[in-house]
Nucleic acid binder design. Structure first.
Length: 152
DNA sequence: GCCAACGTTGGC
DNA sequence: GCCAACGTTGGC
């Protein structure tokens, strides 16, 4: 079992959007970064727990919890010229980009703000607060996960 | 909107 | 393979 943090811009897709899907399952498409892709392809497994994180918004932080219900498979939006995630260099023989499906578990009563997370000495080494943490999919270790969940 | 910190691209 | 230019991310 592994733990992750998936970033999303709530203006585009928020925790509420995820919660409002009837079966609560959504494919996490549009990841166009090789390191994040490698995680999705090789490391993210069924049952892994995922913090949902809102970025580029008023209340930046962790907003809820989801679970991986389908492991890495081909992200179809890379072949769709109409999609903003279209990648003309990708072919169906050799798809470049992957995605996983996640299932909504719960939304936290209160957003665990980045500002607050930065003040927690217990998890000062978390990837999220390190310099240059631009990955949209970040691994979270078990201690960090348990600690943060305990704050929600 | 600004800007730091990356990641990607492409000419050589 | 190097590296400058460019594009993107994301907090503020």
């Amino acid at each position: 079992m592994q733990y992750w943090l998936f970033k999303t811009e709530p203006d585009a897709f928020s925790i509420d959007d995820l919660a409002n899907i009837p079966d609560g399952i959504e494919h996490w498409d549009g990841i166009r970064n090789y390191q994040a892709r490698n995680y999705l392809r090789d490391v993210v497994k069924l049952g892994d727990q995922v913090f949902i994180y809102h970025s580029s918004c008023k209340y930046v932080g962790i907003v809820g919890l989801a679970e991986v219900v389908k492991e890495g498979y081909v992200d179809h939006t890379q072949f769709d010229p109409e999609s903003k995630y279209y990648d003309p260099k990708s072919t169906k023989d050799k798809p470049k980009w992957m995605m996983v499906d996640i299932h909504f578990k719960r939304k936290f009563v209160k957003t665990l703000l980045l500002k607050e997370i930065k003040t927690m000495p217990e998890i000062s080494e978390i990837g999220l607060v390190k310099k240059g943490h631009r990955l949209t999919i970040l691994p979270v270790n078990q201690n960090e996960f348990a600690w943060l969940l305990g704050k929600c």
